Computed example of a mutant assay.
Amino acid sequence: MSVEWEPVRQARTHELVLERIEQRVVAGELKAGDRLPPERELAPVLGVSRSALREALRVLETIGVLVAQSGRGPDAGARIVRNPDDALGRLLRLHVALGSYSLQDVLEARVTLERHSFEAAAENAPAEDLDEAERILHRMRAPGVTAAEFSDLDTRFHVLIAGASGNHLISTLTAAVRESVRPMILQALEGAEDWPAAADALNDEHARMLRLVRAGEGAQAADVAERHIRGFHGGLVGTGH
């Protein structure tokens, strides 16, 4: 009778540390806000070197589930956190730059996410979120606003609407997808032949979207948002930026 052999699993030490910490999180034994033991205590308990432990902690910090404070005192050490937005945005931006996802992929993802956001925001958005969106649009119309300032405020507006939809994951994904093309959007804004006219046109579209959300016209708001995204972001796809 022939024996079926399975390959021996090989892993670097820090990957085993990551697995162990992940198991604790999944089991509910580690939650956001919890602190890990100091390196000098945790490394021998896990049976690994402090350098391997540090490598695992750096990975966790990069993916937004841990923050490390150096020094001594009550705030020192590594703490479990929930901070996926920046981590996902950074990761997606790198993969877009490497060609893992095309600009067309990102465009369609934005359309899908933001159509949902504007429809849901028309039903669920708290008044204070819509008031904050209004203040952002007011700042975007300020005389002399630069393309960089406009781009940052534009991102805040779209992410705020996504958050106002009531779905935190949609908000996080919207922020990540938007962040993945932030450099290209800024380049396109800065390269506009008539920047004031371009800003006015984009602001008019933003204002219309917000009016429709306030009026509870989610389907119309979603349609305007899609045209807005395809008109500008679609230009990036067409030019190959």
Rank of each mutant, 00 (worst) to 15 (best):
E149F: 09
D86L: 13
Q10R: 08
A68M: 15
E132V: 00
E128Y: 00
V177G: 04
R12D: 15
R72F: 01
R141F: 01
A127R: 15
V59G: 11
T172E: 10
L212Y: 01
R24I: 00
G73C: 14
T112N: 06
L94K: 06
T174P: 07
D154A: 07
I161R: 03
T155M: 06
V81K: 00
A188N: 12
E179W: 11
G163H: 07
E61H: 05
D34A: 00
R90P: 05
A120C: 11
S51Q: 03
V48N: 08
E226D: 05
R79V: 05
I63C: 13
L30G: 10
S165N: 05
H95Q: 11
V8S: 02
R214A: 10
E149Y: 08
A78S: 07
P196V: 06
A127S: 13
E39C: 13
G166S: 10
S102Y: 09
L137V: 00
L16K: 09
D34Y: 02
L36V: 10
L202F: 05
G238I: 08
G71K: 03
L16Y: 04
D105Q: 03
E128R: 08
F118D: 01
S165F: 00
R72M: 10
R20N: 13
Y101T: 06
A148S: 12
T62V: 06
A197R: 15
L16G: 06
E226T: 02
V48W: 05
E123I: 00
S51H: 06
L186K: 03
Q220W: 02
L113T: 04
D200A: 11
R115V: 12
M1D: 12
A148Y: 01
E15C: 00
A201I: 02
A199H: 09
H228Y: 13
G33D: 07
D85R: 12
H241I: 11
L107H: 01
E29N: 13
T62I: 04
A219C: 09
V177N: 03
A68P: 03
A147K: 09
G73W: 02
R178L: 10
G163S: 10
E128D: 13
A142D: 09
R178E: 15
V48D: 09
S51N: 04
H95N: 10
V26Q: 08
Q220N: 13
T239M: 13
D223M: 11
D131K: 01
G73D: 12
S100F: 12
T174C: 01
V213W: 08
G231I: 07
R40T: 14
E6M: 04
H95A: 14
R50V: 12
A219P: 11
I136D: 08
T146S: 15
V213L: 06
L103H: 14
S171Y: 02
S171N: 00
W195K: 00
R50T: 14
E4Y: 04
L137H: 00
L137Y: 05
E217L: 07
N203H: 07
E4P: 09
E29W: 03
A133S: 04
